[in-house]
Design a protein around this nucleic acid. Structure first.
Length: 417
RNA sequence: GGGGGAGUGUCCCGAGUGGCAAAGGGGGCGGACUGUAAAUCCGCUGGCUUACGCCUUCGUAGGUUCGAGUCCUACCUCCCCCA
């Protein structure tokens, strides 16, 4: 199904990771005969990566699995500049403290997907602040800047779009692509890295690095980009009403993470199984063949496997079990999100409005009121019609909790302590 | 430096004659139908309030007015034309 001879490109291609490759034959040959070192840069713009970043991480994972060496590059330096690619407006400048904190949050995720030295693997974690922060402006301009043509930079999409839409592009951001190109070359020097992977929007930035490598060291470097993943309905991956689907457990619980994947649209199941799980393709194809209601089985596998990658097998199984008792048996899943209240408060009685807000199911009392009017509020699976309804000790079930539901999908347990 | 235009509901786009909590989309949430899917239809989509109502909101700060998103002044930001 794919024309590649190397395991590396074969696996990526057959699982749907490849959008564009520069000089595919040469890279294929290289990957067949030697250990390739490749990297992806991750900017530290938030305290956690989200589902959107999963695709590049999976590429690094497969890279290592097929016998090569992945580098996860933290953008400690480039985040101080801000990548204009795909952005309509300038990003707010992050303070160095924020960047440092974000970097810390992001870093931990990689150990789940890659084997670093401490785990007996060859994966490398790097931070471009290590070399970018030390640059001297004049030296940099003379050594690197001389190779960049403004004429050509203006033609890059990330720049062109801003100019065409008459949106501000600061000189600071304009320099991002130069720094990213420099990163590539620096990693080539330090680690013999010859491949940069990334999302399709990174193509231009990566190609710049290839050019620079050729000019400075006569090196042959390669680019490989992944397609932009949207759902079949065209929505971007990883955004829900509650916000981004973060990978860190303190931001999105394994249960909610599992639910995110469980609710995948039918048309996306096969594609997502290939991209976001490590199941063998045979198994993926079998699951993808399921039709109609049976495809729900495939969705559960997708949810559990995807959750296991990020949060571990135990958490994934627990999320699956919670979902089963909650949705299929109509019972109380022990793993549902839980909030605690004192018995004293419960004895006095809690208002429905305040409690649902406290449970995070609604943002304001008004929202709960509207939800009640829409028949969306349930206590112990019983519809609430009176917004003055109080929650008291009598509502505590035999399981020792009160089940709060917004609609049929979102549940929170209220636990007296 | 001169002339012209723009900034709207804290997700986005976008209408707005002095009576405006502010049209219409998209997105999101909920309901019906289903399979925790899609499509479709319906409802909701500033805060507080049982409610009358009160409060906050149209770039910022003042002003005119019974009343300002709308008119006036200054300022900020962006865009276009001229220099």
């Amino acid at each position: 199904m794919s024309a590649y001879k190397s395991d590396f490109l074969n696996v990526l291609a057959s699982r749907g990771f490849i959008h564009q490759v520069s000089e595919p034959e040469a890279l294929d040959a290289l990957a067949r005969t030697s250990k390739v070192t490749g990297y992806i840069g991750f900017d530290c713009t938030a305290s956690s990566l989200h589902v959107g970043s999963l695709l590049p991480i999976m590429m690094l994972h497969w890279m290592q699995q097929t016998g090569h060496r992945p580098i996860a590059l933290m953008g400690g330096g480039t985040t101080r500049v801000g990548d204009p690619s795909g952005k309509d407006e300038s990003r707010k400048l992050l303070t160095d403290d924020m960047i440092a904190a974000n970097l810390k949050g992001i870093r931990a995720v990689f150990a789940k997907f890659l084997k670093f030295e401490e785990a007996g693997g060859n994966a490398v974690m790097a931070n471009n602040a290590d070399w970018l922060n030390a640059l001297n402006y004049i030296d940099f301009l003379r050594d690197i800047g001389r190779y960049f043509s403004i004429n050509r930079m203006l033609a890059f999409d990330s720049v062109k779009l801003r100019l065409e839409r008459q949106q501000e592009l600061s000189f600071l951001e304009f320099n991002y692509m130069i720094l990213q190109a420099y990163d590539f070359v620096e990693l080539y020097r330090r680690h013999g890295c010859v491949l940069q992977l990334g999302g399709s929007d990174q193509w231009g930035n990566i190609v710049n690095g290839i050019d620079l490598g050729r000019r400075l060291h006569n090196a042959q470097l390669f680019a490989l980009t992944a397609p932009l993943i949207t759902t079949s309905s065209g929505a971007k991956m990883g955004k829900t009403a509650a916000g981004a689907v973060w990978l860190n457990a303190d931001l999105v619980s394994p249960y909610d993470y599992w639910q995110y994947w469980r609710n995948t649209e039918d048309a996306d199941v096969a594609r997502f199984l290939k991209l976001f799980t490590v199941l063998p393709l045979d198994e993926v194809n079998r699951l993808a063949g399921l039709k109609d209601a049976e495809i729900n089985e495939a969705k559960k596998v997708l949810a559990t496997e995807a959750t296991a990658l990020v949060h571990g097998r135990a958490a994934a199984d627990e999320a699956a079990a919670t979902a089963r008792t909650t949705f299929e048996e109509g019972g109380l899943g022990a793993g549902l999100p839980t909030i605690e209240v004192s018995r004293g408060e419960l004895k006095t009685g809690l208002s429905v409005l305040a409690t649902f807000v406290k449970a995070g199911l609604a943002a304001s009392n008004g929202e709960v009121r509207r939800a009640i009017a829409n028949n969306a509020i349930l206590i112990n699976d019983e519809r609430v019609t009176d917004e003055k309804r109080m929650i008291g000790e009598a509502d505590v079930t035999a399981d020792g909790v009160v089940k709060l539901s917004l609609g049929r999908k979102r549940h929170v347990l209220l636990k007296p302590i």
